[in-house]
C-alpha cells in the first residue's frame, strides 16, 4: 500500500471511531434528558400496566447496554425507530428531507466559489485600489452578518418590495426538475428520447427562483470567508520566488497568476472550507427556517418543538456522520493536492 493508501485507511478508521462516538453521545443524551419516552407516547390517563407495556415495546425494561446494542445494530440496518408523534418510521422521513438541504448547501457553495475566488484574486492583484477596498469591506461585513437576518432583509427587499423572487418555499426539487430529462427512456416507451425540454425549463426556472435568495443567504458568509483567504493566500504566493522566476522566464502574467499562484492558494482554502462545512450545515438549518425550505433543518426544529426524540436522534446521526465522512474526504483531497504533508 502506498503512503496515500495508508493515510486514507488510518483516517477512515478514525472517522469510524468518531461516528461511533457520535452515535453513543446521542444515545446517552436520551438518558440525561428529563422525562421518559413513555410520557410522550402514553395517553395521559394510561394505567400503569399500559405504561409498562409501552416501555417493554420500546425495550426500555432492558439494561442499558442491551438497549445500546439494539440501537447500534438497528442503525447499521438503516433503522432509526419510530417517531413519537406520527408513529411513522424515522429513517425514510430523514432521507426524504436530505435532498432539499443538500440542494441548498450545494447552491450556496456554488454561489460562494463563483463569487469569492475571482474577488479574492482581483483584490490581491490590485492591492490598495478601489476594488480591493470594496472586496475587503464586503468580506468583513459578510463575516459579521447573521445570515438569518440577511435572509429576512433580502425577503423584505427583493420579495416584498420588488417582487422579483418568491418569499419562501420549494415547490419543485432539483431532482424532480432534472427528472424531466431522464426518466423517459425505457423499453416500454421505446428507447427514443423525447426530451421534455419545456417542462424541464419551467421546473428549473421555478427551482432557481426559489433557491436564489436562500442560496445567497447561506452563501454570503462563505463568499466573505473564501474571499479573505484567497486574497491573503494570493498575496503570500505572489511574493514567492517561483512566481518571480516564472515571470523572469517571460511567462505571461495571467498564466503565472492563475496556473501557478492561484493553484497553490487553493490548497489552504480547501482545508478551511472543509472545516467550515459544519457551519454550512448549521447555517442551512436556520436558512431553512427563514425560507420555509423543507429540509433537514425544518425537520429538526419541528422535532425539537414536539420533543420527538427518535426524529431528533435520527437527523443528528445523519448530520454528524455526514459531516465526519465529508471531513475524511476533504483531508484526503488535501493530501492528494499537497503530497508533501505525508512525508
Amino acid at each position: 500500500m502506498g503512503s496515500f493508501g495508508r493515510f486514507l485507511l488510518k483516517r477512515s478508521l478514525q472517522g469510524v471511531v468518531v461516528i461511533l462516538g457520535v452515535i453513543s453521545v446521542l444515545f446517552a443524551l436520551r438518558y440525561v434528558t428529563p422525562g421518559s419516552p413513555v410520557d410522550f407516547i402514553a395517553p395521559l390517563d394510561a394505567s400503569d400496566a399500559t405504561r409498562r407495556r409501552i416501555a417493554e415495546s420500546l425495550g426500555l425494561n432492558q439494561p442499558f447496554y442491551v438497549q445500546y446494542g439494539d440501537y447500534v445494530v438497528s442503525l447499521l440496518q438503516g433503522e432509526m425507530g419510530y417517531s413519537y408523534r406520527s408513529r411513522t418510521a424515522v429513517a425514510p422521513r430523514v432521507f426524504a428531507k436530505l435532498p432539499a438541504t443538500l440542494e441548498l448547501a450545494v447552491a450556496a457553495t456554488v454561489v460562494a466559489v463563483i463569487l469569492s475566488i475571482p474577488l479574492g484574486v482581483i483584490s490581491a492583484t490590485r492591492r490598495h485600489t478601489g476594488p480591493d477596498y470594496a472586496a475587503t469591506v464586503f468580506s468583513f461585513l459578510g463575516i459579521s452578518t447573521p445570515n438569518f437576518w440577511l435572509g429576512v432583509m433580502l425577503v423584505i427587499l427583493f420579495a416584498v418590495q420588488f417582487g422579483v423572487f418568491p418569499t419562501s418555499g420549494r415547490p419543485v426539487g432539483l431532482l424532480d426538475a432534472l427528472g424531466h430529462l431522464v426518466v423517459i427512456a425505457g423499453p416500454e416507451r421505446g428507447w427514443a428520447l423525447p426530451l421534455n425540454v419545456g417542462p424541464f425549463l419551467a421546473a428549473m426556472q421555478n427551482w432557481l427562483l426559489h433557491v436564489t435568495l436562500p442560496a445567497i443567504t447561506l452563501g454570503t458568509y462563505f463568499t466573505a470567508l473564501i474571499t479573505r483567504l484567497t486574497r491573503s493566500g494570493m498575496l503570500d504566493e505572489l511574493g514567492q520566488g517561483y512566481v518571480q522566476a516564472a515571470r523572469a522566464k517571460g511567462l505571461p502574467t495571467t498564466l503565472v497568476r492563475y496556473r501557478h499562484a492561484l493553484r497553490n492558494t487553493l490548497i489552504p482554502v480547501i482545508t478551511v472550507v472543509g472545516l467550515q462545512l459544519g457551519t454550512l450545515i448549521g447555517g442551512a438549518v436556520i436558512t431553512e427556517a427563514v425560507f420555509d425550505w423543507p429540509g433537514l433543518g425544518s425537520l429538526i426544529i419541528d422535532a425539537i418543538n414536539n420533543r420527538d426524540w427518535p426524529l431528533i436522534q435520527g437527523s443528528l446521526v445523519v448530520i454528524g456522520a455526514g459531516f465526519v465522512v465529508v471531513n475524511v474526504v476533504v483531508d484526503a483531497l488535501y493530501v492528494r493536492l499537497n503530497p508533501r504533508v505525508l512525508e
Binding site: G21, V22, T33, T279, G282
Partner: peptide, 24 residues
C-alpha cells in the same frame, strides 16, 4: 481529542438547538 472530534462532528447551531430543545 477523540472526544473533541465527536463534539466537532455536530454543527454548533444544530447541537445548541438540540440541547436547548431537550433541556428546556
Amino acid at each position: 481529542m477523540r472526544v473533541a472530534d465527536v463534539s466537532l462532528a455536530f454543527p454548533s447551531l444544530v447541537l445548541a438547538i438540540a440541547l436547548v430543545g431537550l433541556f428546556g
